[in-house]
């Protein structure tokens, strides 16, 4: 994992010195490395887009998840469950395309699509984490005389944290992949490199764009898994 990370950093710092790696995949003397826009800058704007979307959808999904599991929001719980399971069948690409008429071209529709699509895994897992707790824990919290707010902050949320982190992981990995498609609606992401490769039949471009996104996705996947393990060890 560390090796992959170092390789990625070296590649982004100086893509030109890796052209020998990609040269065999070009034809007719086409360039081996995408230079239209620096790769590190595309990576950065790709990651910013994903980070903003994931942070926003996590925040909103957490608040909604807590609201519908409170006594005053219980009326929404069955509906919320149905919406999450039905909503996740919506194809991300379709959501992205449908956001264009509302937002115009650019980063806007991509952000909205990533945000909307990212809500569901976090929300679903927050619900699961907050509602599937063993009855003994509920009883113990009540017996200790915790107020509902104390129980939420000191018992329910810490116990649900590993499951919530799993939801965030799903959201982040899906967003990372979907953001590449965002470049079809003119968002600045690594998808630009892949699309340039598709348009000029230059496999080297397709591969380097895919490689950077793939390595980052694996690293995010592993990172969130480590966090979830840490969180579940802390709560025992």
């Amino acid at each position: 994992m560390a090796a992959a990370g170092l390789f990625l950093l070296a590649f982004l710092a100086s893509p030109g010195s890796f052209s020998w790696l990609f040269a065999p995949m070009t034809r007719n003397g086409a360039p081996a490395i995408y230079t239209q826009t620096p790769l590190w800058s595309l990576t950065l704007s790709h990651l910013t887009l994903v980070a903003v979307a994931v942070a926003a959808s996590t925040l909103v999904a957490l608040v909604l998840g807590v609201l519908v599991t409170r006594p005053s929001g219980r009326e929404f719980l069955p509906l919320a469950r149905t919406i999450t399971s039905v909503g996740q069948t919506f194809p991300p690409v379709a959501v992205l395309a449908l956001a264009v008429p509302v937002m115009g071209f650019g980063a806007g529709p991509t952000l909205v699509a990533l945000f909307l699509y990212g809500l569901l895994p976090v929300f679903e897992n927050t619900l699961a984490g907050l509602t599937n707790q063993p009855a003994q824990i509920r009883e113990a919290a009540r017996g200790m005389g915790l107020t509902p707010a104390q129980r939420l902050w000191q018992v329910d949320l810490p116990l649900a944290l590993p499951v919530i982190l799993t939801g965030m992981r799903l959201t982040a990995v899906i967003s990372l992949g979907t953001a590449t498609i965002g470049s079809t609606v003119a968002a600045r992401t690594l998808g630009e490199v892949i699309i340039a490769g598709l348009l000029s039949s230059n496999t080297a471009f397709v591969l380097q764009g895919g490689m950077v996104v793939g390595i980052i996705a694996v690293m995010i996947h592993e990172g969130f898994q480590a966090l979830a393990r840490l969180a579940s060890r802390r709560t025992g």
């Binding site: 995949m25 990995v173 590449t180 397709v206 895919g210 996705a217």
Partner: peptide, 18 residues
């Protein structure tokens, strides 16, 4: 199989062509 899933769909489609 897990690593296959992390490749962005756009890139996987693209790589299949050559």
């Amino acid at each position: 199989l897990n690593i296959l899933q992390t490749i962005p769909s756009l890139a996987l489609f693209g790589i299949m062509i050559p």
